[in-house]
Design a protein around this nucleic acid. Structure first.
Lengths: 335, 335
DNA sequence: ATTTCATCGTCAATGCTTTTCCCTGTGCCT
DNA sequence: AGGCACAGGGAAAAGCATTGACGATGAAAT
């Protein structure tokens, strides 16, 4: 690929002048300018981003860490981030952490090596003190899925406990008393939070939730099937199922339909996240909204404003907490 | 962020020695090695990828161009690419083109500026001659969704015409004669190819497909709903619906169910792509498999082997064409 | 005591662009 | 005509890591 020197030679000027045309900070005579532009086009020249980064000490790059690209929830998140970044002329660098602390750290380190200026991180596995340390080291570091008091200004987060409550409150309001919960066996804190919220709500409503009524599966369709089948095998009866996420809920719908149970007539089901899936499946899923698109946008803007000298942090925003709300569709009904 | 000089100073050695430790090409005594490693850890030093890229003339980066990250189909694609790339220690740089020729070109140019060595491109809008030009300019350039004779060795592609045939053949074999087709109004060539395949098949089976039986919508749930509703408003009757993709098919399922029609008893529906959605929805979608994960893997390996001097291209592979096949589930039945 | 490695420092060059400083030439004013 | 201002553009340094050649140092071996 051609360099700026090649362009300069072809246009009969010095590299400095070519650079001036590229950045258009200084006035260059129209004649030479068009001559240079013609040379650029002819050689198909693109300024080397690495050389630029080196000298300007800025890369205009935002790094994103998510668990997996293929998951619709994270895909949506990455997409929203890219959208905001693009408007600010930032490149997006995506790295996946796959629920593993070591891999998450590797992903972050790799983004650091690329000298990302901003970073939006969804960390499922890293310990809080590691994250605090990273936040203090990296100016544009923002967490998108958890709240850590010491770095509260860098946390855009979702109230999972309230989410659990919303699910359980709704089921209670519909008159359900035989409730089972499908959580995930992945050791992620949000599952615990949601479960805590469910427990709080149910005890307020004087509804019993024995441990045998909680099953654990992988956070996807298959995991939902297996978990609900496991409960049925155990001889447990229920009229309502609270799921860790929408994908598991679709697994439950499928398994129960196969067994001839009607939804929501025989069994009510509530999902979590409100990914596209929830609208598409049959019956349409009643679920808890996790406004990941808005949150991702906010997190990106926060990260970018953290590194912008001219645009200072809006100090009135002490907190970037987002609350869940129920999206009523067709999978839950009165008992 | 600390530089290699800072590390050298702290460890009491020269920058060259630090570099030797980092690349581990030359023997360094264990004592100094640990001293340097300690300094690296203490300063949290990460070699500047840009400086490295500049001197080594290699970035170990693969660029990906897709229409939208949020689409499950593309998310799956990006995920598979990342998987293969990671194993080869390649960074992935994702850029979106949003079905727009200008934006696709901008995305590619931006990846070029980053000096991506390999590139996997899903181009929906760029003209063939532009793509040919790019392929000749960029050594590791691979197209993943279309076949262009002049650069056949760089094309990993899917036979959309055959895909259209598969759908129509199946419906014909089930005895359907009143068939409608839902295509996309986006001007993408694959929609045309699928439609051509459908037409070929139906004329072979002596089934008529008048133009009024073809509706066009956006390639998603809402588009599917609108398109089928439009046909019904026109007073067109049918027993089978052939959809451009799975998302549209779910829209059709939803719309028809709302109207009290049973699937597949009253109407048979076939989707396209076999994204996760197809398994999750109710009834489960009969659809045409587009093996995007395998294709993405292949495309990535192809791109990487194109730029690897040691691993020459397997010349026996003249062609990287992938064929569709039918995945029979529950949304289609005998007429 | 001398040779011989192993180990590491020094120096320079390389890669590409940006930016500061400085020089040239032209046109204008008095 | 002389002087000045200013536009336009060149030269060179800086930014960071790698690599090769070559030299220096020290310790171990003969």
């Amino acid at each position: 690929m051609a360099t700026i020197k090649d362009v300069a030679k072809l246009a009969g000027v010095s590299p400095a002048t070519v650079s001036r045309v590229l950045s258009s900070t200084v006035v260059v005579s129209p004649k030479t300018k068009t001559r240079i532009e013609k040379a650029i086009a002819e050689l198909d020249f693109r300024p080397n981003a690495h050389a630029r980064a080196l000298v300007s000490k800025s890369t205009h790059t935002i790094g994103v860490v998510i668990s997996q690209l293929a998951d619709p929830f994270f895909a949506q998140m990455a997409s929203s981030i890219e959208d905001v970044a693009k408007k600010r002329k930032f490149q997006v660098l995506v790295s996946t952490g796959s629920l593993d602390a070591q891999k998450e750290l590797t992903a972050i380190k790799s983004l650091q090596a690329q000298r990302c200026e901003a970073m939006v991180v969804n960390s499922k596995a890293l310990a809080d003190d590691v994250l605090i340390d990273l936040a203090q080291r990296i100016p544009g570091f923002v967490l998108i899925n958890k709240f850590i008091p010491q770095i509260s200004q860098r946390c855009v987060w979702f109230d999972n406990v309230a989410g659990g409550k919303v699910m359980a409150d709704y089921m209670a309001s519909l008159g359900h008393a035989n409730i089972v919960v499908l959580s995930t066996k992945e050791r992620v804190y949000d599952a615990t939070h949601r479960l805590n919220g469910i427990r709080q709500s149910l005890s307020q409503h004087n509804i019993n939730l024995p441990d045998q009524h909680i099953a654990y599966g992988s956070p996807d369709y298959a995991g939902g099937r297996e978990a609900i089948e496991h409960l049925i095998e155990q001889g447990i009866t229920f009229t309502a199922v609270l799921c860790y996420n929408d994908a598991m809920a679709t697994g439950v719908i499928s398994a129960l339909t196969d067994l001839g149970r009607r939804i929501p007539d025989d069994v009510s089901i509530v999902g979590f996240d409100d990914v596209l899936l929830a609208k598409y499946c049959m019956p349409k899923l009643t679920t808890v909204k996790y406004p990941i698109d808005i949150m991702a946008r906010k997190a990106t803007e926060l990260a970018l404003s953290l590194i912008a000298k001219d645009r200072p942090l809006n100090q009135s925003d002490k907190d970037y907490q987002y609350k869940p709300f129920l999206v009523k569709r067709e999978s839950a009904a009165k008992c």
